[in-house]
Design a protein around this nucleic acid. Structure first.
Lengths: 213, 213
DNA sequence: CCAAAAGTGTTATGTGTACACCCATGA
DNA sequence: TCATGGGTGTACACATAACACTTTTGG
């Protein structure tokens, strides 16, 4: 049953930094691709669940994590056969990176191995899942306004959404968000907005469709 | 990089036998779970793509094949750590099984390892993909009528659909089906139906929604 | 002729979209 | 009071669902 195939996890971690959908990358220290950027990841430990391994290798304590796809081409790694179980993680908005390595997805450097494909697949999965799941709230830390949530959609999809229709859509989905008693403090004038937190709903029915389609 | 983790593919192969959504199972000959039913699969060969391995292990020459999910719990296999890359295959309707091992998904036997979970995930993926993809045509061999295509949806979802609305929906989706010059022969009376073949479209916009939701 | 299935028409109902307009706050 | 963003109302386009109706075949 042992075949000399290595098993790794590689994790596409996305967040929104300063209004830009961004991915976390690390710089490789060893050959091959020494000095190139790559998605965080590493070998799966003995007795370790794949999900656990993904969280450990990505340093992802909280936040959303889901399996993305498995990449197993025989020539992916010049050192030998390596099958990589890729994951997609999402963490709340950051105003500044906690430690280096966040790249806006429009300004990605060349990546090692097939990590460019993995990252592209992860971004597309995130964009698709916003349509039919409540995953957008995973990008929001603590209480948020409907404008905050709308900005998540606008940033990830790269479109502008009508605030009025977005509000109706979100509030008409049972269990998507729950209102708090507080209102947001205003920064630059304007009426203070109602604050919300995540609701128990996981799926959206009907879906929030991307305007481009 | 070699860690003693085995890598396999396991394939959920679905078809429609005699109006029933059915899965192909094989009987295990060796321990563990000798005599139990399991989904077809096996180890990935050296230098072999995962997709190739899935087709080879499932004996799937044509038909649709897509990656489903990877199962890697440390206790999946009592012999040791085995990561299984699961695939979902679909082949056209069969009036009778070509060789044994087709089970209606409502009458499944107990399955070896975690293959019950894998099979359930595969069935749910198939049901979900009918909504937003043209995958239903993968269950149709050669030219088909719109009634044939509707029966695919009805069988996989376990619901009844209105023929008139289904027709309009399918024909209004560009590139989903293409009409042929022929009409079907009638079996038990009734007007002969127009025959169609698959079109180039892969995605459905808007989606074909399950009535249950 | 009748039964059966293909195919068309019609209408009520709901959902997405665009946009006008009012409300509450900071400066 | 004005600018800004939160929040409401409304009209139109379009999709769905239900079902009556016509067409074309076999028996």
């Amino acid at each position: 049953m042992i075949e000399g195939i290595g098993v790794r996890v590689d994790v596409v971690v996305l967040t929104i930094c300063d209004g830009e959908l961004s991915a976390r990358l690390i710089r490789r220290e060893r050959e091959p691709f020494a000095g190139a950027w790559a998605v965080p990841g590493g070998a799966v430990g003995p007795g370790e669940e794949l999900d656990e391994a993904a969280r450990r290798r990505a340093g992802l304590v909280g936040g959303h994590l889901e399996q993305l796809r498995t990449y197993g081409g025989p020539r992916r790694d010049p050192r030998g056969r390596v099958v990589s179980v890729a994951y997609l993680g999402m963490i709340p908005c950051l105003t500044r990176p906690p430690w280096g390595g966040w790249f806006p997805v429009h300004e990605l450097p060349p990546l090692a191995f097939d990590h460019g494909v993995i990252l592209a697949d992860g971004i597309e999965r995130a964009r698709a899942k916003l349509e039919y799941s409540s995953l957008a709230t995973a990008f929001c830390a603590g209480p948020f306004t409907l404008a905050d949530l709308r900005h998540v959609y606008e940033t990830v999809w790269g479109v502008r959404l009508d605030g009025a229709n977005f509000r109706r859509k979100v509030l008409s989905t049972p269990g998507l968000v729950e209102p708090l008693r507080r209102r947001s403090a205003r920064i630059r004038g304007g009426r203070p907005a109602q604050l919300y937190r995540r609701g128990p709903a996981g799926q959206l029915h009907p879906a929030m469709l991307r305007p481009s389609c």
